[in-house]
């Protein structure tokens, strides 16, 4: 299964190797507010779930994304 890092790399069109748990809007080119919406949709598609707006706002970096996905029962 594709990991959160894989999805982030695909959405922003960057090398998979350049993404790790610390990756965030500050460090990834293109991760702006619109990019965040695209990422949200890609995560929902990839993990087959629906993410609350309150949670989407909290997704400040890859590590936090994983924590939140775990709340949805995803083993990320």
């Amino acid at each position: 299964m594709r990991t959160v890092e894989d999805v982030v790399a695909t959405v922003f069109g960057v090398e998979r190797r350049s993404i790790d748990e610390t990756s965030s809007p500050e460090s990834v080119e293109g991760w702006d507010s619109m990019g965040h919406v695209n990422l949200l949709l890609a995560l929902e598609r990839n993990f087959k779930l629906s993410i609350a707006v309150a949670d989407a706002i909290e997704m400040a970096d890859v590590k936090k994304i994983k924590e939140i996905l775990r709340e949805y029962g995803v083993r990320a």
């Binding site: 629906s50 609350a52 707006v53 949670d55 709340e71 949805y72």
Partner: peptide, 9 residues
């Protein structure tokens, strides 16, 4: 009702 975590649902 099995309420999902996302309130938009």
């Amino acid at each position: 009702v099995e309420l999902p975590r996302d309130p938009s649902r």
